[in-house]
Design a protein around this nucleic acid. Structure first.
Lengths: 309, 309
DNA sequence: CTGAAAGCGCTTACAG
DNA sequence: CTGAAAGCGCTTACAG
């Protein structure tokens, strides 16, 4: 009967039996429809409460038009970068009448069967959903690896990175240090290339490098892996008595609004997350309709110079 | 036929017809099940692609055991306070095999039919879901108003507020200014009461008060409405050359991790959001099972003294 | 390896 | 105002 562990969940039939009415009368009571006497309605609702009845989303969804559901996979909501994107996606999705089911990168598979389309923004390459999800439209935002069947929002970094590097060089920086992922990343590479183009060699270290790795050679410019890393950097430099920007210039990446609240305010490569969210939603909708000619959209970064550089 | 605007969505029957097989053969191909020849599988998958077939979540959910879905309504993901809670809920829900569908406060109604239970954390009172959602278990976190049928996670502020006030008084503060919501709030009231208990009158102003409202009378302690407000305050004070904590002491509320990164680091009333998330999930599960004797849980704040006070 | 039948829980016409 | 029938899209036994 009941494949689950717990007690069988009450269905409309259980309520009908408990109230001594038919199934459609239960529907009428529960959905507040006309054509039912107040007395019957009360009796049915009481019975529903009695048997702890919750209507099945599936039975209902099968038979009446329901909101489509977007699966949203973000890297870490604790990072305002991802949280801001999620906030925008939520807003846009609500406007378009979609629901949004969220998951962590590890749980993408759980989304199959829960979502009609998926948008991923994780810093990693989303593994394809696999069996049971044929033609599931997937859009990845700024993925490190291109995945064939998936749509993609690409970040254009070159221009803004060039702006940032020119800005740093213009202020006299000559010994830049780039903090990057252990394996390297496109954002780190973009900085190294831009410095190289100006004849300056940038040193690359692990983004989790501690003070011991940062101080030797006295870099005069630090490129953090992201703004959160930049915040940490500012704190550590302050703790060691290093003045920013006098002793060393610091630049972050992401464009977090909170960069305005740290001291000194953090210069950063910003991206318009609202635009990213909009592009991702548009694209995923097109993919669901099977009408995306070229499933790639490009959104540019721009450099925001603040006090830290 | 088709109640929606767009073209009718392809079903398993359409694929079966296109591939010249039966429905169950389509199921086998699509779900990567055994008992089907590779050739047939390929042909079916091609047909599925052809007609742009996506399996219906509802048809499938009706017939096989699926993850339950938690509706999570948060105030504003842009505020790390809410984002941190959401992150924890996501993690815990994944562990327990729940999906999480998120919505903004305005769209709670959209969650009906999408969620099996709802947790709300909005700073507002959640309006009850209404028709079509009998017995929908709802848990509200720190709601301003108590709602009968709903479960509740309450924040215990009195103790920590007392600690903060004693701390401020101990450092010589005598003219506290409390920034509160226009209509007042329990967190503001808790501070006013605690000061009053020590014989000190706190002035209350709108949390969006500008500099003109803050400077007169030269308060020597500012209680921000939340940490984000505290960050803004620190920035404004700095801009006006007011030194913190020498000239004025500042305390926030929420316990954001980012308070460690502003200058000076912000003292705050912190709450363990992981504990809050856990309590909310436990309670909502109990409510779904109809087994919550007393649907209220209490989680305490604690005062964290940092540089700003 | 493939297909005909039954049924998941619900709502929507249609009768009475 | 109330109920019997049909069907939403899918999977699960069961036959062949």
């Amino acid at each position: 009967m009941n494949r689950n562990a717990g007690p069988a969940r009450a269905t409309i039939v259980d309520v009908a039996r408990a109230a001594g009415v038919s199934r459609q009368t239960v529907t009428r009571a529960v959905n507040d429809m006309p054509g039912i006497s107040p007395a019957t309605r009360e009796r049915v609702l009481a019975a529903a409460r009695e048997v702890n009845y919750h209507p099945s989303r599936f039975g209902r969804g099968l038979v009446k038009p329901s909101a489509r559901t977007l699966g949203l996979v973000v890297g870490d909501l604790t990072n305002p970068y991802y949280a801001d994107l999620a906030a925008t996606v939520l807003r846009l999705a609500a406007v378009r009448g979609w629901n949004v089911v969220m998951a962590e990168p590890g749980s993408v598979a759980d989304l199959v069967g829960a979502a009609d389309a998926v948008v991923g923004f994780t810093g990693l390459a989303l593994e394809p959903p696999g069996a049971g999800a044929p033609n599931l439209p997937v859009v990845e935002i700024d993925p490190p690896r291109v995945h064939p069947g998936h749509g993609r929002i690409e970040f254009e970094r070159r221009t803004a990175t060039g702006d940032a590097v020119r800005h740093l060089l213009g202020r006299g920086a000559r010994r830049p240090l780039v903090l990057d992922l252990p394996g390297g990343s496109s954002r780190g590479a973009a900085f190294v290339d831009a410095f190289a183009a100006a004849g300056v060699d940038a040193v690359v270290v692990d983004r989790d490098a501690g003070w011991a790795d940062l101080s030797p050679g006295a870099p005069d410019a630090l490129v953090a892996f992201n703004d959160l890393g930049g915040f940490r950097l500012l704190r550590d430099l302050d703790a060691h008595g290093v003045r920013v920007p006098q002793d060393v210039r610091v630049v972050g990446v992401d464009g977090l609004a909170l960069g305005e609240f740290v001291t000194p305010r953090l210069s950063t490569l910003a991206i318009d997350l609202a635009e990213v969210a909009r592009a991702a939603l548009d694209l995923v909708v097109q993919l669901s309709e099977g009408s995306a000619d070229d499933p790639v959209r490009v959104v540019p970064h721009r450099f925001i110079a603040r006090e830290s550089s």
